[in-house]
């Protein structure tokens, strides 16, 4: 009985959020804020900086979606999730979109009922070893102790790789990246394995990054992308095409520098459609006409987002590699805006 009273009191006190309407898009618009699930802290992808602002590659996706839907790139509520809580958070409606280094797999798509809206980073699981070990290939790692950051598909890939190569290893599962790194640096494990991008990000923070090498083997395909709940196609379309807008913008040469100029109208009809000066793509999505422009204005096109957060000029120092545009030998290929 007492419990009900307390619950009632807290509910009335406005702690619990309001009721949800039919679709996520309407919810977000009504709320005026996008709830975006991110990691609890992976530098370069999603981490709060010294002043408490979230920044990173995944964060930029959230901001672009918020800008496209609400016209305000700061109207995002970042919800930190762990590997354990992320799917429940999305399934239960606590977050609208999950942009958290989540690998697109069959079972997550089909069995867990989520919808991946594209790939914002093509990753693969790699290995990092101290150079002094003199290891040049992952196949030489027989008997090694391997630190794994848990909560991803990493454990499974690792088990499969060692099993198929018929070599043994000692797994050390670690909850957070910071602790895994401490274990690795102290020599409690010989190898650190996680997504290659994460390895690069981690190595960048070392005292002596040169003493550690990334092995050439990439043992898995890890297409990372934002995902939404299954069945809400309008909302899925919004997230998918916001991501595509960023990718197309790079392909079409729309940058945050020339955005205002381009938005005034160009000779290229696709740019015009993307930026909303021609056609009614925004209306079809249920958004304003300048949604694409807003999304790009949030953090620049895909190339700029990449360069600012994880590119070669940053401490993370990742090359574009697979994540270059298809015209430059990469895998990024946005369907046309028409």
């Amino acid at each position: 009985m007492k419990n009900t009273v307390i619950l009632g009191a807290l509910t009335i006190a406005g702690l619990s959020a309001g009721a949800a309407a039919a679709g996520t898009l309407d919810d977000v618009k009504a709320r005026g804020k996008l709830n975006c699930g991110v990691t609890t802290g992976l530098v370069g992808f999603a981490a709060p900086n010294a002043s408490g602002e979230w920044e990173g590659f995944d964060v930029a996706v959230c901001r672009a979606v918020a800008a496209a839907v609400l016209g305000d790139a700061t109207a995002v509520e970042f919800v930190p999730t762990t590997g354990k809580t992320r799917f429940t958070a999305l399934a239960s409606g606590e977050i609208d979109v999950l942009a958290r280094n989540t690998t697109w797999t069959f079972s997550r798509d089909v069995d867990l009922k989520f919808e991946f809206t594209g790939v914002n980073y093509y990753d693969g699981q790699g290995f990092m070893v101290p150079k002094e070990l003199g290891v040049s290939s992952a196949k030489e790692l027989d008997g090694a102790t391997v630190c794994i950051q848990t909560g991803t598909t990493t454990e499974l890939n690792l088990a499969d790789f060692f099993r198929s190569n018929n070599i043994s290893y000692e797994p050390v599962p670690i909850e957070t990246n910071a602790e895994a790194q401490q274990q690795y640096l102290a020599g409690a494990c010989d190898v650190y394995t996680t997504d290659a991008s994460g390895l690069a990000a981690t190595r960048a923070t070392f005292e002596a990054p040169d003493e550690h090498a990334l092995l050439p083997e990439i043992i898995s395909k890890e297409p990372l992308g934002p995902l939404v709940r299954h069945g809400d196609h309008e909302w899925g379309d919004v997230v998918r095409w916001t991501l595509n807008a960023l990718i197309s913008a790079e392909e079409l040469g729309v940058t945050s520098a020339n955005l205002a100029e381009m938005a005034a109208g160009t000779n290229n009809p696709e740019i015009n459609r993307l930026l909303g000066t021609e056609g009614n793509l925004g209306e079809m999505l249920g958004l304003s006409a300048d949604w694409g422009k807003n999304a790009i204005a949030a953090g620049g096109n895909y190339g700029e987002v990449f360069a600012n957060n994880i590119g070669e000029a940053t401490p993370i120092g990742l090359a574009r590699g697979l994540n270059a545009q298809w015209t430059k030998g990469g895998l990024l290929y946005s369907p046309p805006f028409r």
Partner: peptide
């Protein structure tokens, strides 16, 4: 802190130790 709330321990294990400046 285990369920991704940033209490004192969560802050230490998460954002602070994960930052480039204070890693370690």
């Amino acid at each position: 802190s285990v369920i991704s709330m940033f209490d004192l321990v969560g802050m230490i294990r998460g954002p602070v130790l994960a930052s480039t400046e204070w890693n370690g």
